[in-house]
Design a protein around this nucleic acid. Structure first.
Lengths: 301, 301
DNA sequence: GGATCCCGATAGGTGGCGCCTATCGATATC
DNA sequence: GATATCGATAGGCGCCACCTATCGGGATCC
């Protein structure tokens, strides 16, 4: 049985006339007669009483009409829904963001994203790199914003902007007197985030260290880390976009003597069909941050 | 778009694997790949993300699945309903019966009909011949029980049984003393039903008359007519099946000297597809009344 | 790191079937 | 009895769903 057959059935039932129903369906009358006949054979039920002036639906036919209508309507709904989903820049877009980036980047880009991609329903999801990649591969996220450079054959992505690291010092710290700070100078009393944060590894690498101050002091969030620095527990490296939050916490910020930082990328599955949406989101973020990166570079210079 | 396409869509979405979905659908994997691809082109939407270990439904696809399921389910409902309607001796059967027959015949045949045709939902409808034929031609009735012999090219039917007329007399009437009564003897003071009842015309014809006693006295129902006879207003001819009701009303019944009566037929539209049901109903009624007719004939003889 | 396996896509060929036009048979109308 | 209308039938054509065979890519395994 076919949707076409059901449409023919509905047409004849409505018009009670094969010729007119055929015209309404855009086919010839013999076509309709044959198809209805086949449908009757298939169903084992006589659908129409021919011979009078009209082709009257039988009682059995009337009992089938509602189901037939429902089937045709549902099929139409598939088409209509598909039409509304056709725009790749529309629909839900679940974007994973690492915790050391999300609170500082998202406020900057929500506005431009809404403006540039009004039909895209952005759903941010905050987690650490490994968890984000797991969710991405499980199709629970559409794309992720990462600060690491690893590449995988099943994933692809593009760099969006470079985010410089800055030295974060307690106001009374000796290094706070300098214009710029060398990473190695921070190594002595640097504080880092807890395991799993990519920023932790990057900060340690920048300082040429592999271990940091006492494990008990490892902060589980950047906010906590900033509060610890402000309280004089030690120093740290923070990503540039967190500068505002750091200053609010009463921390002294100093550029590094040689540019050091991380590159933020947007990453999606290699076969992700909504790739245009991922690229568009990346483009909007990159454009919004272009000026920021340049001005920061200028300040550091 | 086709129901088959939707089934394929559902299969791939369920198995998340083209090969297994193909096996489940009973087609080859290339067939499924091509058809899904065509569906994607038609809808303008990518339905599955290929390339990983699994073929994962996209977000757009998931939004279509419910509609697709509804369409397939409705189509299945058409088939299932048709299967249950396949028996021509099942379903609603609207049977028109004339008023001078219905109250006396139906109690006799309801039982046998329920027993012989348990799946047939009999819906009796009582009205005069002309109205019944109108409703029959308008497909508002499936068959009618008539006492007239007219035939029409768009109708057909079979005789079921012959119903003798009997003379109905007030107890004190002079003719009540006789064993049998001649129709012509009744002519003097015969009462008849109102216009539209076929029994009216048949009674008048049997007596060789075309007019009857005063128009004001024309009874609108056989019950009223019997009451009028019992009250001494006059005589009448009644159909044999009403004998019981007549005697209950205190009327004297006498056979006619020469057999006179009417033939009850069941009539349906010439193109009525449920003809087997009409014939079966007729058969049950005829069989139930066979003994009656013979015994009546024996009584009259 | 080459061989192997698994996945979905592609190519080429074939049969079924839905569609057409032309025509018929039956029925209703004048 | 001639005409018009309706649905059924006949014959032919072209599309398309289906098959088998094969390909290309990616993961896995000695």
């Amino acid at each position: 049985m076919n949707l076409r057959d059901l449409r023919y059935l509905l047409a004849v039932a409505e018009h009670e006339h094969f010729g007119r129903a055929a015209r309404a369906c855009g086919v010839s009358q013999p076509t309709l007669s044959v198809q209805i006949r086949k449908l009757e054979d298939l169903l084992g039920v006589v659908l129409f009483e021919r011979g009078g002036k009209v082709a009257a639906p039988t009682a059995a036919c009337r009992q089938l009409l509602d189901h037939a209508r429902a089937a045709v309507a549902a099929a139409e709904a598939v088409l209509a829904t598909a039409r509304s989903l056709r725009d790749p820049l529309a629909g839900r877009f679940r974007l994973g963001v690492i915790p050391t980036l999300a609170p500082y980047l998202l406020p900057l880009v929500f506005g431009p994203l809404r403006e540039a991609l009004p039909a895209l329903e952005l759903e941010p999801w905050e987690d650490q790199t490994a968890a984000l990649l797991e969710r991405l591969r499980a199709h629970e996220l559409d794309a992720v914003l990462l600060a690491t450079d690893e590449t995988a054959p099943d994933l692809m992505g593009v760099p969006l902007f470079a985010e410089p690291f800055m030295a974060a010092l307690p106001p009374e710290h000796p290094l706070a007197a300098r214009e710029a700070v060398a990473e190695t100078d921070l190594a002595r009393d640097i504080l880092v985030l807890s395991d799993g944060h990519c920023l932790r590894d990057q900060a340690l690498e920048a300082c040429g260290q592999t271990t940091a101050l006492g494990a008990a002091l490892r902060a589980s969030s950047l906010t906590t880390l900033l509060n610890m620095v402000a309280a004089g527990y030690g120093t740290t490296l923070i990503p540039g976009l967190a500068a505002g939050a750091a200053q609010d916490a009463g921390i002294v910020l100093r550029p590094l003597t040689t540019w050091t930082g991380r590159t933020i990328r947007i990453v999606w599955r290699a076969h992700f069909p909504q790739r245009p949406a991922a690229e568009a989101v990346g483009e909007v973020i990159a454009r919004r941050l272009r000026g920021y990166t340049e001005s920061t570079a200028a300040t550091a210079a």
